[in-house]
């Protein structure tokens, strides 16, 4: 589904990703762990097409297509979703309009009729329950005045609405209490299927108790320095990242 080969990325002349290789097959859950500043968000942003990154080497293919050539909105409509580490507020744009536009853009891309207002509200109600979203939140502007936890739930709510093929969750667990964490995990797991894949970017092992990964990768200083099964997460939790840092000469 997603194949990253020897990916080098710089920002403003500074090399951040230094040769990433990663294969993700349908149905798999991958966790990417690593200390702050190791390049996790950079990787997520490059995959979703954010501007401002220089791809100096390497290639990424998504379902056989050159992902790096695709416009960000096309990547989204082709099923790549990112739950943002820091969801941005968009004052003046009501959640409902925003979500309906997003859902109908996805439908148009699949040659489906747009949902009517009624159909959309019904869908929204369904998905809200799944992530226990406060009903009032969708009456506000996008993320405006949402608490940290509400913003993260809102990301998963949007994921549930858009039903992506490849979901990249960037530190969705940070700032969540244990109940919210469970709710978020339930939302993610509800979407799990043999066709859909998930990349869970996280600092801590905590979330991985609820979203169980098939593979765990450690990203350190712009490189994947270790890949293994879910037991690696526990090992990191027990030993901390210093162990990785030492092994990699730092």
């Amino acid at each position: 589904m997603l194949s990253i080969k020897n990916l080098f990325v710089s920002v403003e002349g500074k090399e951040i990703l230094k040769g990433i290789n990663l294969e993700i097959n349908p149905g798999e859950v991958h966790a990417i762990m690593g200390p702050n500043g190791s390049g996790k968000s950079t990787l997520a942003n490059v995959l979703t097409g954010k501007e401002g990154y220089d791809i100096t080497e390497g290639e990424v293919s998504y379902n056989g297509e050159d992902l790096l050539e695709m416009a960000p909105e096309d990547r989204a409509k082709e099923g790549i979703f990112m739950s943002f580490q820091y969801p941005v507020e968009i004052p003046g744009v009501p959640m409902v309009n925003f979500l309906k536009t997003a859902v109908n853009e996805h439908r148009k891309h699949r040659n489906e009729e747009p949902l009517t207002a009624g159909e959309f509200l019904k869908l929204m109600r369904e998905k809200k329950e799944l992530v226990e979203m406060d009903t009032q939140l969708t009456n506000r502007s996008v993320n405006e005045g949402f608490s940290g936890g509400e913003k993260k739930k809102n990301e998963i709510f949007q994921m549930a609405l858009l039903e992506p093929k490849l979901a990249i969750l960037d530190e969705t667990d940070s700032g969540l209490d244990i109940d919210a964490l469970k709710t978020v995990a339930r939302g993610v797991n509800a979407l799990k299927s043999p066709e859909r894949s998930t990349v869970v970017v996280t600092h801590y092992q905590r979330l991985l108790d609820y979203i169980v990964p098939d593979f765990v990768h450690v990203l350190y200083n712009g490189k994947i320095v270790k890949s293994a099964g879910k037991e690696l997460a526990h090992e990191l939790e027990a030993k901390g990242y210093d162990w990785i840092k030492k092994e990699n000469g730092n």
Binding site: G49, A76, F84, G92, V93
Partner: peptide, 19 residues
């Protein structure tokens, strides 16, 4: 953020400006 939800830059600006 809008792009990532499948909304083009044009539509995003339209939405923000109209809001």
């Amino acid at each position: 953020y809008c792009n990532q939800r499948g909304i083009s830059t044009e539509d995003a600006i339209g939405m923000i400006v109209n809001g």
